[in-house]
Design a protein around this nucleic acid. Sequence first.
DNA 1: TCTCGTATAATTGTATACAATTAGATTCGG
DNA 2: CCGAATCTAATTGTATACAATTATACGAGA
Lengths: 224, 224
Amino acid sequence: MEGYQEHSLGGRVFQKIREDILSGKYKENDELRENTIGNELGVSRTPVREALRQLELEGLVTIIPNRGAYVTGISRRDIWDIYMIRSLLEGLCARWAAEHIEEKQLYELEETILLSEFQMKKESGFSAEQIAMLDGRFHAILYEASGSRILSHLLKDFHNYVQAVRKDSVASEDRARKSIREHRQILRAIRDRDEELAEQLANEHIMHVIQNLKKQGYEKENCK
Amino acid sequence: MEGYQEHSLGGRVFQKIREDILSGKYKENDELRENTIGNELGVSRTPVREALRQLELEGLVTIIPNRGAYVTGISRRDIWDIYMIRSLLEGLCARWAAEHIEEKQLYELEETILLSEFQMKKESGFSAEQIAMLDGRFHAILYEASGSRILSHLLKDFHNYVQAVRKDSVASEDRARKSIREHRQILRAIRDRDEELAEQLANEHIMHVIQNLKKQGYEKENCK
DNA sequence: TCTCGTATAATTGTATACAATTAGATTCGG
DNA sequence: CCGAATCTAATTGTATACAATTATACGAGA
């Protein structure tokens, strides 16, 4: 958006630590020492501190005054919750997109779906990375199209949060195909300006992901 | 939760600036200079920087690298969006609370309602401050009762965001009375473990607030 | 051997110093 | 008088220094 996160040291450190938490390099309750991380990344404590404070706000890190910063981590229960919440919000997003979307964005959505379909047709097998990326792009366009700064911001955050899980989700070829078909249906509803249908389809789209998650052991009960 | 926000300088500066933005002391596009704010609060730039970085993450401040921090502000459209989102999420929250709530929390909810009713009966007229506070408490208990760290965190954030507006909302005696009646209905549904009804009532509860907002000029169209 | 207390080391909290970048003023040329 | 280049001041970005707090290790006494 404004380039800060890529430009400044603090921003890069923030992204790096977040990635390391979400990817599992730092595990739950790990202590994050400012000096240690600073040395690893070749920067001073200052940008690291800024990053840790931001991560606390995101809920990935817990700071105890005069003690240190500890990884909060995200449990399977958290993942489950996020998807339940996302289901509602993606529905609302699709509804608003049906109201506000512009021709250019409709075209971009179409393009993303075509690229996804192309990826699935490759003889050499599809790349889960690519599919995850395109899935991300599809939803990102939708977020913009909603015309709501707040909703867009929120859904982007969640998107980052479950980054690691999303890749697992589309790793199954069956799920990937269905997902793309659902994207197409959602696009059609939005193009037809059918708010009701768009909301319902987007809703179900995420619910399907949840059902898929279930198969992979992310059950609701599986929380600690 | 962890005491950092109250304890450390950075945390207090963060809260102070946020308050000043939400209360309107700092207006949209105002430049927030680190030194200026630091001098005003009698602290150095370091905690101010931390606070500004956090506020950027919350969407209240926009940072342009090597240029400065500017107030993003929240438009009426933003407020509207937040309440629309809250409507869905409070519904989900009530549903989950109906599943997980404990006796102690049921009692706390009851107590909060009783205090609200008492406040409305005062001959000297009710205090909007107090009613807003009790309204906040009621919802806060519900957030905890949902048993979802994620959802709770999210709704608390929104709650802070619209702090200023909430007071306006219950300033009308008519709305305040209806609001408390709705709280009572929600509590009953949760106590009966009627998830469906609880969700629906909580949903409508926030929608009623939106309708009330409308009367006060927070129309959806009123966005810039 | 266990416990309590003290001393020392390590870590965070805050302030300051220096570097880098940007905005604004001033001057010079046209 | 206007515009461009350059210099200066102001502001941010980062690193370091110092203060305060906390954790750890060690030793004395029961």
